Amino acid sequence: MDSTHNSMKMTAAEISYLWTTYQSDTMSICVLKYFLQHLDDSDIKALVNHALDLSYQHVEIIKELFVHERIAVPQGFTDQDVNLKAERLFSDILYLKYIKNMAGGGLSGYSRMLPNIYRKDIKSFYSKALTSSMELENKATLILLEKGLATRPPFIPYPDKVEFIQKQSFFLEGLGRRGALTGTEVTHLHFNIETNQLGAALSTGFSQTAQNKQARNYFIRGKEIALKHTKVFRDYLEKHSLPAPAGIEPEVTESTEPVFSDKLMMFHFSVMIYAGIGNYGIAISESQRSDLVIDYSRLNAEILKYSEDGINILVANEWLEQPPLSIDRQNLSKK
């Protein structure tokens, strides 16, 4: 990034985005550094190294921006939050799927941030981050395909003629009356199965290695929720004779040696939950069956309650850094 900083003051959006990105990337550095201690496949190792390098770049750029603007640099996550000497907890396959998911999250997050950014240097930073995430996701996808590990969404017939919807029941009567799912509905079901399966695998590993009892029970509960949601989505696909991706829990070893701090794992789950809520929201907006919308909505409500319980654990253990806030005018008036 150009060392000449923009003279415009940062907005609430810009400060908050940078603060959140710093937290996420310092966490990623810890996670990816551990992955590299237990990687056999050279292609996946190169991919993880590339992802790690991107996170290091982001952290340094944000730190420079904050120092220049006299904004307190967050603590984030450090070497104290990871035990690089711990035994292998996950397989190379999980590492690869993790990177693909991580890059996909970057694509979604950065594209959502960019329209709210006006400062030239920060817009340039996130534009480059978006491009880097796209390249990382493409590389991860290519490796998955080359190794025969890709779980592509199911196939549907090619439309051979133009047709128009004749009845409103296409949208409203979702309780088995429409005999087919739209391609978009199939895509969201498949995607949300995959993300929940990754969540179930990570929660398995985290629950095996967590030292705090509250955190351990939280991860066990998270696995139960992920498997429950997976079953709901899988039933839709199977009911329409469509395949669903297989789980990846076998990619978790039996190790119980602590790897990451409970603080890092709880924060990691909060990031995953945040992404899951967004994924379900998009699925709701793009689904045209009432039963699907109802199921996504009730499952989202369950995730929101689970998220609240996680925040309470983070706060109770003083693991949650306070994000940038607006001025509390009411409190100032009292003073």
Rank of each mutant, 00 (worst) to 15 (best):
P159R: 13
Q75H: 14
Y296N: 00
D25T: 11
M27Y: 02
N138L: 05
L314P: 01
A244G: 01
E64Q: 13
S28N: 15
H268R: 13
V259S: 00
L107R: 08
E238L: 12
M134C: 09
D79E: 14
K45I: 02
S333A: 11
I165V: 15
L96V: 07
F260S: 06
D43K: 14
K167G: 05
T78H: 06
N192G: 02
G76S: 11
S333Q: 15
T151H: 07
P243T: 14
P324K: 05
K45P: 00
P157Y: 08
A86G: 12
H5G: 05
A200P: 02
I311H: 00
F35E: 02
T20H: 13
L94F: 15
V48H: 09
H229K: 01
K123T: 09
K9W: 03
Y34V: 03
E257F: 06
Y56S: 01
K334L: 10
A129Q: 01
Y296S: 08
Y118K: 13
Y22D: 12
I273Q: 06
Q168N: 11
S333L: 15
I44H: 02
Q322P: 00
S108Y: 14
G247Y: 07
K161C: 12
S287W: 10
I193S: 01
L198K: 08
G276Q: 11
S55G: 02
A210G: 11
S326K: 04
N49C: 07
I99Q: 00
R70L: 05
T195D: 05
E135D: 12
S127A: 12
L107E: 11
D40P: 00
L65S: 02
L202K: 04
F171P: 04
G247W: 03
S24Q: 14
R178L: 08
E135Y: 09
Y22A: 08
M265P: 03
I273D: 01
G276E: 04
A316F: 03
I71Q: 08
G104T: 03
I193V: 12
L144P: 00
G148R: 01
M8Q: 14
G222K: 10
G76P: 08
Q166H: 08
G104Q: 09
L149V: 01
K123Y: 14
D81T: 09
S261V: 12
S91A: 09
K45L: 00
D235W: 07
E321C: 06
E302N: 07
M134L: 11
I294K: 12
D160V: 15
T182R: 05
Q288H: 13
Y98A: 05
E321D: 06
A226W: 05
A46M: 09
H50M: 10
Q80H: 12
P159T: 15
S111D: 01
I273S: 10
D53G: 00
Q37T: 15
T187K: 00
N101G: 14
A201R: 02
F233K: 01
I117K: 03
V315T: 14
K335G: 10
M265C: 04
D121A: 06
Y95K: 06
N217W: 04
G199Y: 05
A51M: 04
L325Y: 09
E194R: 13
L237G: 10
E69W: 03
Y280N: 10
I273R: 02
L172F: 15
Y218K: 06
P245R: 10
V186M: 08
R221P: 00
T253R: 03
P115V: 13
W319S: 10
E163V: 15
L144V: 07
E87F: 02
D262R: 03
